[in-house]
Amino acid sequence: MSELGTFVPDEVLEASFKKPGPKQYTLWVDLEYCVGCHACTMACKGENNTPVGVDYNRVMEIEVGEFKDSKEKPDVRVYFVPMPCMH
């Protein structure tokens, strides 16, 4: 199963810092750290004071794999993907 957590290798990140010219900033969230607590959604709400039902930041919970037979070792993964709007 491919690991979603490794899609920005460190070398790529380091190399991008060294590039000359204007910088394009991105927000990099290490998915291995994210425990899916949704606190970022709440922090964003507090900061931007959005009404209930409007969230600029959301956290997706992605379920991969299927587990149906208890006699087999389960092969399930869940990934938490915070999706800030980058504002």
Partner: peptide
């Protein structure tokens, strides 16, 4: 969620 992190 802990299991999700353990298997990550």
């Amino acid at each position: 969620n802990g299991a999700a992190k353990a298997t990550h």
